[in-house]
Design a binder for these strands. Structure first.
Length: 375
DNA sequence: AAATTATTCAACCGCCTTCAT
DNA sequence: CATGAAGGCGGTTGAATAATT
């Protein structure tokens, strides 16, 4: 037989804790130590489930908790660790003294997930050697139970790789090394800088259009043309030459308020990648596609965003910043001038790394690619 | 000032592994 | 070995609060 039940759920108090309950719980634990959650409520004179007591203590009453806002340094650590560990909140919190998994999780969901939508690591890469100091993590040493990451149990809700094809990379070791460097040392600086007036770009209608342009080598800016005819730099992104699938997408509310999405590419090495943003029911979808030897059912990354968008863009050719960022997908598919450029638009699917020659892909295969691409 | 909408975050839920029985 | 509760975790909810209309 197993153990006796931890608590009867009937007649127990739920909801917010009162100051009096907090005091009872704190006093009891300070006198008797943590643990024994089953018997704790009764002994402490609390009409609470042991689980509830444990949560309250762990998340709010512990004496070693750090109060106050998450600092910029902590935020950066969260971003870096989340890029590597995913939603392993307990593990992430273990690297930030005085912070709880619940706090980190809430902070991510309410602050960071909208600002930095994704960091993508191709699944065929080994986990980068991010140094995680397990000695700082109570999780590692104390863990008795604990659920398996849901990412292992079901499809990731916000990002999924739907392919079983591993895209070819010229030098996987080099790629892994670059990713490792990114994560361990060189996380890009996302600077939500104050709006900076710039001369308006003629290609943007006033009041519409958000796009990216090269600001200087190694960085790009997210730009919007405002109602008064001035471009505004909304955010700046610094990338590292040779980034692989390095997509930081800044989804600040101010960027999507008039039904436009924004995206950019971090991939400037062999093969390249494209990201397409398209409207879907209840939001929009970003699709990342490798260009090198891309085939139907090739490597696809898909993200569902909560905001709405009608702005559809595609970049093509060599992964440089001298592109026309303002392609309108509707124009392409509706058959106006851009449709006539179909081959140019889609040639990225079978171009070589320099965007000059074509890799060996039969016309039949190209047709299949196009069909898949538009499907 | 009131109503509406958006955001935050404390608390709960359900599931997992471990381990006492 | 089988059973089932304990302890622990990530996902989700909804009340409280803030911001906007």
């Amino acid at each position: 037989m197993g153990r006796v039940p931890c608590c009867e759920k009937v007649g127990l108090k739920r909801g917010r804790w009162t100051a009096e309950e907090d005091e009872k719980l704190t006093n009891y634990i300070l006198a008797n130590g943590e643990g024994g959650w089953r018997s704790l409520p009764k002994n402490a004179g609390l009409l609470r489930c042991g689980k509830s007591c444990r949560l309250r203590w762990i998340n709010y009453l512990r004496t070693d908790l750090k109060r106050g806002n998450i600092s910029a340094e902590e935020e950066e650590i969260i971003i870096r660790l989340h890029a590597t560990l995913g939603n392993r909140w307990s593990l992430i919190a273990g690297q930030l003294s005085g912070r709880t998994d619940n706090e980190i999780k809430n902070y991510w969901n309410s602050h960071l997930s909208r600002k930095i939508y994704s960091f993508r690591r191709p699944r065929y890469e080994a986990l980068p050697p991010l140094t995680v100091d397990l000695s700082k993590s109570s999780v590692a040493s104390k863990r008795k139970g604990g659920r398996t990451s849901r990412a292992n149990m079901k499809k990731n809700k916000t990002y999924s790789i739907v392919s079983n094809k591993v895209p070819k990379l010229a030098n996987e070791a080099a790629v892994a090394s670059k990713i490792s460097n990114i994560i361990t040392n060189e996380v890009p600086k996302l600077t939500n800088e104050p709006v900076v007036p710039m001369p308006c770009t003629p290609t943007l209608d006033q009041g519409h259009g958000k796009y990216l342009e090269e600001a200087e080598s190694g960085s790009c800016s997210m730009v919007s043309c405002s109602e008064d005819g001035e471009n505004q730099v909304l955010a700046t992104y610094e990338w590292l030459e040779g980034d692989i699938f390095y997509n930081y997408e800044i989804m600040g509310a101010e960027l999507v308020d008039d039904s436009h999405g924004a995206m950019f590419f971090g991939d400037v090495t062999e093969g390249g990648a494209a990201v397409i943003s398209e409207e879907t029911e209840g939001g929009f979808t970003h699709t990342a596609i490798t260009s090198e030897e891309l085939e139907p059912n090739g490597e696809i990354g898909e993200q569902n965003c909560s905001s709405t968008s009608t702005n559809l863009c595609i970049g093509e050719g060599n992964w440089d910043w001298d592109w026309d960022w303002d392609w309108d997908w509707n124009d392409v598919v509706q058959g106006d001038d851009l449709w006539g450029e179909e081959e140019n638009v889609l040639s990225c699917l079978w171009e070589d790394d320099n965007g000059e020659g074509e890799i060996s892909v039969s016309s039949e295969k190209q047709g299949a690619m196009v069909e898949w691409f538009f499907s």
